[in-house]
Write a protein that binds this DNA or RNA. Sequence first.
DNA 1: GTTTATGCAAATTCTTTGCAATACT
DNA 2: AGTATTGCAAAGAATTTGCATAAAC
Lengths: 135, 135
Amino acid sequence: MNSALSILKHHKLRITDCRLEIIREFLSKQVALAHSDLEESLNSQFDRVTIYRTLKTFLDQDLVHKVLDDSGATKYALCSHEEADHNHEHVHFKCEKCGETTCLDAIALPKISLPKGFKKQEMNLLIQGTCSKCS
Amino acid sequence: MNSALSILKHHKLRITDCRLEIIREFLSKQVALAHSDLEESLNSQFDRVTIYRTLKTFLDQDLVHKVLDDSGATKYALCSHEEADHNHEHVHFKCEKCGETTCLDAIALPKISLPKGFKKQEMNLLIQGTCSKCS
DNA sequence: GTTTATGCAAATTCTTTGCAATACT
DNA sequence: AGTATTGCAAAGAATTTGCATAAAC
């Protein structure tokens, strides 16, 4: 039940080629993808604008989440089931050499106590360095 | 010794109006600033391009660091002295209501052990929620 | 048949580059 | 004087919007 089709159905979105292909990209490559990555790998199969709108739709429906990046490009990754239930804690590792960002689901974030009056809704930890492939 | 002037001298940069004013903005507002924030608060006192180049110079000289943000805009904050000595660990809090991002220097990041072959160089934790002013 | 998504064109915004004039040391 | 910075113009990316056509339900 982790097919592109079932994911779309689960989020009650219309089934279109563009949406299916974009989800398949996320499923096959296990890294965070930017708009430009999708545009390139889908090889002009769909309009640039359609990809922007698809990502926006997915974001609104909590099908993907933004992945922080210091390069300026906005990157996205599929939400896991838990995240879809509003557990928003992400740990990502970005390799400075190959530029790839991967989710480190195995690592849990410790509880952090904030100053008075601050309410936490989401935590994002980005670790930058060199990945195993590049070191 | 925390004046705009001394900061520039410490980094061996030429003293110019634009650089002084931008550092003063960072010193007075205690939040992370994007290019657009500076452009607005400096009220066209300097060219848009000059602000871009000044931020780039500051970044190269480790006078400011990038602050992660999910809005797409690149934000910057002054480096503290320790950070200038290449201790790159940042905890930031972004309020979803007012949009302001503040440094939480008091909070230390726990040590995180990465999978084999991964080398850590920098860690950024962004906590999003509601700040004390907005709650 | 009604609603929603797509493609195309065009407008905006964001960022970078080249070059001559100016300011800094 | 010599070098680095600025402003202006213009180019190049990234992102958004409007609208008619096409596809999904």
